[in-house]
Design a protein around this nucleic acid. Structure first.
Lengths: 301, 301
DNA sequence: TCCGCGAATTTGTCCTGGACAAATATGCCG
DNA sequence: CGGCATATTTGTCCAGGACAAATTCGCGGA
């Protein structure tokens, strides 16, 4: 596996891979005949563990180079804060994924959705499932294609539910919300779940899909006369980049447009003009508050 | 703007930016006090033009360093090859996109779908629309966020139609088809349209979504006991990479599994064990032929 | 004991300039 | 005019050095 492939796969930049090798002696890739690094599969797996640990706040110097066993132990400790969340639903989903049962997976997701309702599903079950699958993958318990399958089925189920909710009676009204993610963020699940919550609140939602360049997000906000920009950040995106992007975006749009950021990205902090919604369940109250502010405020145009 | 920001924004890798500067004298960034490149906004804009021209097949050595006027002229020429295909539907869609009318866009797409049926829509209208939007974007007539909006609405409409078709009566039966794209291919529209066609034929479809690593596609084929791998290639993916990937994939799966490739990628050619379906309308007959072969063949298991 | 603040360490990203393979164009011959 | 060998172009990789931003440490004062 070439250095570029590892960068894509583990999310560790090429420069960082080289400097880790220089400083800590790991990874320790083979070389092809032109002296280019070739990473064996097991080292790539270890790198994925390392990425999780570093994201969780461990310092590279302390963890790079240690054995897989050590890392697993640390990872379990990291996981401790939220292990009880791996409820029976997640276990069931992982079991079905293990059996490669695509149709069964969709049935289960649909059943969960029916039982909890769209709001309950998105607020309480969805994030837990996504996290459990992500964790299982990074621990090597799931293959990439199983994670893809989960994402695809989850997307299908959620999209059709959103569709149904949108069609259902409720008149759509403001705030007008624009959804997207930054260019470095390809994950759509968080965005979709947020969209579901806003839809349930009767908002006017417009999605640009994932990975919109920042100036384009600003242009779209103007074009669509958005009240709120809803942005989703997974733990894949480096926190400094997220923060820098938010600052840049804030400078490109009028003060009347709010920015609401959410997702599992650890370093996400509220700033002037940027709200951070830690959980999807916070969206409902936040929309209510927005509408109250709006009603109280100056003449609506 | 730092080199990393330019890489994100224009999609030109850092190494390439540096080597263009070394070889062609452009871009010609300022330096901050620590000798780091700072790209002025106008050079970044030119780089975006260059990126499009290079994607369209121009050689960097011929275009990097030329004036913005020259580049604009070339860009317009790039768009010329396919203007006559723009039917009335496409014109309507472009007009609505120009007005930033998200809801209207969805209504129009839905109306077109209803009028032509899913099969007719996908075979005759969809690709034309996608191509017209792509062409308008590359000629600078549409902004990126408008193209994103189109993709998102198109996806929504198609997915819900596929969903409905899947739910409708018809018992699902073989072939069992696995859908995905190669890692360099992020476009999902072609894949979705193909999925619609296979669904209409009553096939058992399983989608992995876009950008699955090639060994993972192979692993998934085994795990799901697929009969056919359906792969979609847009004109974004370099032809040599597509061909190399197909060869690699062919070697990883048993001969009994067929590979069907489709899409706008120019250099796509059939090879032993790899069929190329030029148009989506070819899917129906191909499935019929597959079933005939299957029935005539050895004992079904 | 705890808290702030300056010093020391760690860490990621950028630099230069060289190398080469894959992709593409060019020229030659049948 | 089409197919193949050769030449050129082009992207990505390498090494090893540098430094700023982030983080931790150590110390003196409340």
């Amino acid at each position: 596996m070439s250095i570029a492939a590892v960068e894509r796969d583990c999310g560790v930049p090429k420069d960082t891979l080289r400097v880790w090798e220089r400083r800590y002696g790991f990874p320790n890739p083979l070389r092809d005949r032109h002296d280019e690094r070739l990473y064996p599969a097991d080292q790539v797996a270890t790198l994925r563990l390392l990425r999780r640990l570093v994201d969780a706040g461990h310092r590279p110097g302390k963890v790079v180079g240690r054995s897989d066993e050590d890392l697993s132990v640390l990872l379990r400790q990291v996981g401790v804060p939220a292990p009880q969340v791996v409820g029976s639903e997640a276990k069931q989903v992982l079991k079905i994924l293990g059996a490669y049962d695509a149709a069964g997976l969709r049935e289960v997701l649909n059943a969960l959705l029916m039982r909890a309702g769209l709001g309950g599903f998105v607020a309480e079950i969805g994030p837990g499932l996504a996290e459990a699958v992500g964790a299982a993958w990074s621990r090597g318990k799931l293959e990439i294609h199983q994670e893809h399958l989960f994402t695809e089925q989850f997307t299908t189920v959620l999209r059709s539910a959103i569709n149904a909710a949108q069609g259902a009676g409720l008149p759509r009204r403001r705030p007008r919300v624009l959804f997207s993610t930054f260019p470095q963020e390809p994950h759509s699940l968080g965005l979709l779940m947020a969209q579901a919550m806003f839809t349930l609140e009767g908002c006017l939602g417009i999605s640009l899909g994932v990975q919109t360049p920042i100036p384009e997000i600003a242009a779209a906000a103007r074009a669509h006369e958005a009240d709120i920009l809803a942005l989703s950040f997974s733990s894949m995106i480096p926190a400094p980049q997220a923060v820098a992007g938010l600052t840049e975006l804030r400078g490109l749009i009028p003060d009347t447009v709010e920015i609401w950021a959410g997702g599992a990205c650890p370093g996400l902090r509220p700033k002037p003009g940027v709200s951070v919604l830690r959980a999807l369940s916070a969206i409902g109250p936040a929309v209510t508050a927005w509408r109250a502010r709006e009603d109280k405020g100056s003449t609506p145009e």
